[in-house]
Structures are given as structure tokens and as C-alpha cells.
Design a protein around this nucleic acid. Sequence first.
RNA 1: GCGAGAAUAGUGUAGUGGUUAUCACAGGGGCUUCCCAAGCCCUUAACCCGGGUUCGAAUCCCGGUUCUCGCACCA
Length: 494
Amino acid sequence: MYPIRKGRNMGELDEIIEISKRRGFFWPSFSIYGGVAGLNDYGPLGSVLKDRIYREWKSIYAEIGGIEIDTPSVTPENVLKASGHVDRFLDIAVGCKTCKTKFKVESILADKGVESVPESVESARKMIEEVKVKCPKCGGELGEPFEFHLMFPIDSNGERYYLRPETAQGIFVNFKLLLNYNRGKLPMVVYQQGKGYRNEISPRQGLIRQKEFNMAEVEVFLDPETNSVFKPDSNEKITLLDRDGQTHTKSLVEAVEEKIIGSEDHAYFLQKTFEFAVRIGIDRNRLRFRQHRKDELAHYSKDCWDLEFRMDNSWVEITGISDRGTFDLGNHQKTSGENLSFEGEKIARVIEPASGIDRMFMAVLISAMKKRENGYNNLSLVDYMAPYPVAVLPLQKKDGLPEKAREIFSKIKAIEPYAYYDESGAIGRRYARQDEIGTPYCITIDYDTLEKDVVTIRDRDSTGQITGVPYKDLLTHAPFLSNPILRRIKNSRQ
RNA sequence: GCGAGAAUAGUGUAGUGGUUAUCACAGGGGCUUCCCAAGCCCUUAACCCGGGUUCGAAUCCCGGUUCUCGCACCA
């Protein structure tokens, strides 16, 4: 009866994309000009939800003494040269003249047993000639090699810059200042939220693969001589897929004991990452950790575990927890000439939990989306994540109910600015509307309100309600969601 | 980037050369209803962009853009 969906079956991702566009979570950018692949806007609801995800992330790391920094997206070339991105984030590719398939020169050389990365188009051409490589697919002649940049370059007055491919470098280059701020002490946990940019060849799937994306990166600086500053303590069994393809269902504590995970420090940040995902409402049953194989590690990474989320029966990385060792600080020290050591000659070792906030955002929506028996959607967000924690609804649009409702609404606004007011159409329709955008509580103003100043509170997930709540009791607790009456509703529902 | 398909209101769609461009839902207004998208009436709102063929193009052709699915790539 509601949007008739013929033709293809919608997957959960398609469904979230449809609802998001309709209700204002996100949509493709620049659509009046035909749109641009891989760029999306967060709408009014999505902007709030995204901020709430960042808020929880910050509090997770602030709780363990982390400090925040905010650095530019526009980054000078020499910084990204030192970090290896200029050379390693640029692929030299070549196409087959016959079947038109394109390959990374690096990988077809590797197939021939040549383990070297061409540094230029010219050297790639020479190497192809020397090794006599043909098209691995059809055996045809290969064409001219060409460069494919994964970073967006910016040229300004003869100087080259790039849009950062990760926020991390802004932290590494500030190591000295940050360490000074931290009064010379390690461990030091530094986090940064911000945009990252990658020139994806084929951006797809809404927010999953974009050219510009929201990152939440943490760099944990550790004394290389002091292990196990951070220790996991969770006994929850988690699925761990190691680099040899073995699946383990173990707690992180056990995983370290059994050497599935290399260090306690690394495991601890897997735990933190898992805690973050669950705290924002991602379904823990759709999560697993997967270790990178040696050949898929990024150039800066010694070891990496991804937190992956299952959607439409495939796994999507939402966070990578990488052991970057001393790679970045070592290279920046060498290139800049600045002393980035501490306590003499020591270079700090780095563990990096780096989350893709857009992907986590999708995971939150997909985890929360429920279908009711009547076919309507219920976005079962965790209370404190909902863009609107509360809506105020007069039962009908007459008999002075809207006037009373607006009066109460303005009082609610004073303690909960993200409150929604709606008096249009039938009450059931308005409940349904709030359900679809995840509003956990509706306050209904009815005839009893006029006589006795009591309201009805309706709970989103159970659709149950409690009547006769003196509305003044709702105004005595700020923030609104800490109100004990709401807890009572929540606890009583089954 | 290649191959194949697709692009029509906010969403999902009908429409194979001539229609006031279909329908549903959503949105707005009203009647009715004291609590879960009920019903009735009214209303807002679209042919991706640019060329071409034609008396006439949403429809046919070309180019572009975007999307989907594969491949490749990326994480």
C-alpha cells in the first residue's frame, strides 16, 4: 500500500538510501546539476545523527585521557612525500590493447616475480619491456602506461598541495607540540575528526565509497620499550578472522593470550573500537574483526585488524586498527630534520584506530531499521542517538489542543532543543512519521491535558504508552532523556 | 576505467512518435475521528543535460552526466 516496490528487490542498503533521501538523512550532492559520483550531502536529520556519532566517539577517547586536535585538509606536498603517500598513493596502470582491461603495473609485475614498484611512467614502460609482460587476461599487447592519482592535487602559485587522504598526518607533524602539551609523557592519545579525500575510481553504494568522507582517527603514541600500557579486559566473545583465514570466537583477552592478536595494546584498541560501535547502536551480531593479510597492508602498516559490519550479506570495513610502528614519526623526523624522539633517541610506536564515520553512520541506520508487522518502518535508534529525542503532538487539531501543545512544546524546548512539533493529520500518521525518523518518545496532548495538565507518553519501539503523566515532571530533568519517567517506560516494555 | 542495463514529482512508478504525462505513497489545506500512516474532498509537485531526426520527441539517433550490476580498482 505504501510505496509500491516493483521490479528489483531492495536490499537493506537500497532501502536505507531510499528512506534517507525521503526523510533527510543524506542524498547525492549537487543533484540539480546532475550530481557528482562519490559526493553526498548530510540532510537535516543526518547532520545531527553524524554529530552524535562523533560525540560518542570523542567521549570514548576522552575517557581514557585523549586529547583532540583539528588540522587542515589542504596539506603541502612535502608532508605527504615524507609519509609515503605521494609515491605510494599513485598507481601506474596500463591497459591491454586487445581486451581493454586495465591493470596496476605493480601487480602484473609481481605476477612475473618482479617485486618492485615503478616510480614513473617511463620506468614502468621500461620494466614492461624488459620483463616482456603481456596482458594477464588475454595475452594481448599492453599499451602505454599512465598514472592514476589517488590523492586530489591542488596547485597554488607554483606550490603543490594535496587534499589529505587521512587526517593522521596532521597529528604526526604536530607530535612535538602535542608531546609538549602532554608534558612530555607517553602514552599519549590524540584524536581528530575531519574530512579525508580519495580519488575513488568508481564510488558506489551511497556513503560506503566516497571521494570525500568523514574520518575519526586516533593516534596512540606508546613508548616502544614499554608494552601493555593498555590491556583489554572484556570477556565478550567476538568473531576474529585472522590473516590465515582462521575464524576464532574468543574474547579479546583470550585472543592476546593465544597470540591471535600481537599485543595487548593493539587488542585494547580493538576493544575500544567495538565498544564505540556498540555504543552508537550498531548491532554487535553483525560485527567481526578481520586481520589484513601481509599483502594487503597499507604501506605504513605493520599489522592491521579491521572492524567489519555485515550488510546485504557482505562485509564492509568500518574501522581499521593499524599498528603503524615508528613508520610515520621516523619518516617525518628524517625528512623534516626535526627531532621527533622522546627521552633521547626513542621514537614512539603508534597504534591507530581509524573509523570511517560515514560507514558507521550507515551501519547505525541499518542496525536500527526495523519493519513493523503492518509494513511501516521503525528506526529503532538508541535514545541518545536519535536526532529528535522527543516530539510533541496534540491529539487533534481543535478544541484548544494545539494551543496547549505549543505552550508545552516551548517549555520542553527549553530543556531539549531537539524537540519536534507536529499537529497535521491523524495522530497515527504522526506517530508513524516519528517512528521512521527514530524519535524514541512522543508526548501527546489530549483532553486530560486541558483539565489536569497530564500528558501521554508513547514509546516508539513497543508503541506502548503511559497516560496521566504530569507534564511538569517532564520539565524537571535536563537533559530530557535523563528523565526517570522515560526510563520507566523503557524498562516496562517487553 | 571497460561491458551491459537504466534515468519521468520528495519516493516508487505507468507511459514505444501527437495524452491537460498515469497511479500510489509522502508533503500542504479541509471534513470526520478522543490515540497508531482509516475514509472523503481539494492542493503542491516530474519527463537528467545538450544537440539532432521529425510538422510533432518523455518516446527515435548522437554526445555528456549520473545510477545499477558485473569486471577491474580501492579499503
